[in-house]
Design a protein around this nucleic acid. Structure first.
Lengths: 232, 232
DNA sequence: GAGCGTCGCATAACTGTGTTATGAATACCA
DNA sequence: TGGTATTCATAACACAGTTATGCGACGCTC
């Protein structure tokens, strides 16, 4: 494995196991038995390394989302996509925060706005690819006549706002622990959004059941209120 | 004005004018003509200073939200709250990122997870206060029979996820520039969520008009698709 | 009002960070 | 085989947060 590759893998590993403050040149280099100079040879500096980590993380993210089976219920697929999204972020919060430049001051990593223009998530092709996965699921739901609208990108943006906001607030501890927020906030939100987009209450309920079953999660954990009883 | 106060004000000012990387002890102390020692005398260190900045920012945030008039249309109030929320974040992105520990690595500020347990947003009373503003607006909409549900907190969480996610993605450049995302993504999302929560399409449209008018924004800028035409 | 303690703060030094200059070793290639 | 480019260790630099030290101003006590 190339030195470059080893640095990236060590970086992602260190990030998760010891937190962002451990993502520094000396520790990273020591991890692969090299000097700090290797960071500059291969990435031009710590900023370049961060960008490489972000890219790699988005690739992993895209793979996780793309690995989902596509069924004949596009809304269920969409919901499953959301569950996978949230699971990915939940599994390694630091990685998710890094991807969206969402690390607070002093972590030892560079600020999002410190990254190169090309390092900005919106300018990273790998990031666009993951969003495209979402867009396609929305398009299929449109094509199937499950939801109304003429702009899949705009609707995908709504789903993305929903889950991105939820995930970050959940990671910050605003929705309690043990995934309680998924039951009380995220699932009802998805239901309400689908209803607002014109899907049928019974169909939403069925798709939710289907998506939930695919994850083999206990009813209680991901229970969704009956369509129409919006609250929690 | 006390030295402590001057440090906080200089911190927030520097954050916005020169970015998070300028939020360092030496520059900050120089700004008020003092030595770096003052940071340690008053805040125990940079981490303590960051917490103070977060607290102050949340106070400003709460003030901005609380300054809104309360009308007899609770849903319009809710939407106006959302517009104000987004405006606050848009007006000073760095401050908003700081508040939610959402500064990318290396910015020179401490990572959210590096902050004291009491420094976490979810543990900051000032932050809870702003969320409470949202919760009350939701409760009034429930009381007025505009939306359905039995848990105002859960519903408020949905609105919060929506706008928090939107704001961060917008700041990262995912929704284009010039507030285009507000028209194509945020406004339709709010409409759809309200519809899913059981509000009447015509009522939603009217409340949206009302909230928009309150901001004196041109129709085009904050136009909301007719109720039911979810897309964009 | 003299003495004393506390507090705020400047100076200077220490550690750890990203970064760079330099030169050696290695790999590749004509 | 000789030349060139790449990789990387060493060592130093600038600048970050932090801390030890001491000085001076203020308030309290007698």
């Amino acid at each position: 494995m190339s030195t470059k590759e080893r640095l990236i893998e060590a970086g992602l590993r260190l990030l998760e196991t010891e937190g962002p403050e451990s993502l520094n040149a000396r520790k990273l280099a020591g991890e692969i038995g090299a000097s700090t100079m290797t960071v500059y040879t291969h990435f031009g500096g710590m900023t370049g390394l961060y960008e490489a980590l972000v890219r790699r993380a988005f690739v992993q993210f895209g793979d996780a989302l793309a690995a989902l089976d596509r069924t004949d219920d596009p809304v269920a697929d969409l919901l499953a996509l959301g569950m996978t999204y949230r699971e990915f972020a939940s599994a390694s919060p630091q990685r998710y925060r890094l991807m969206f430049g969402v690390t607070a001051p002093g972590s030892g990593i560079a600020a999002a706005h410190d990254l190169t223009e090309e390092g900005t998530p919106s300018a990273i092709p790998e990031a666009s690819a993951t969003f495209d996965e979402l867009r396609r699921a929305v398009q299929r739901s449109l094509d199937a006549g499950r939801i109304r609208g003429d702009d899949a990108v705009a609707i995908a943006g709504q789903f993305w706002s929903m889950i991105h906001g939820f995930v970050l607030l959940e990671l910050s501890g605003f929705f309690g622990t043990e995934g309680r927020g998924v039951t009380t906030v995220l699932a009802p939100h998805a239901t309400n959004l689908l209803l607002g987009l014109g899907d049928d209450p019974a169909a939403v309920a069925e798709s939710t059941r289907s998506a939930r079953a695919r994850f083999g999660v206990a009813e209680a954990a991901l229970r969704v209120p009956g369509a129409g009883t919006a609250g929690g």
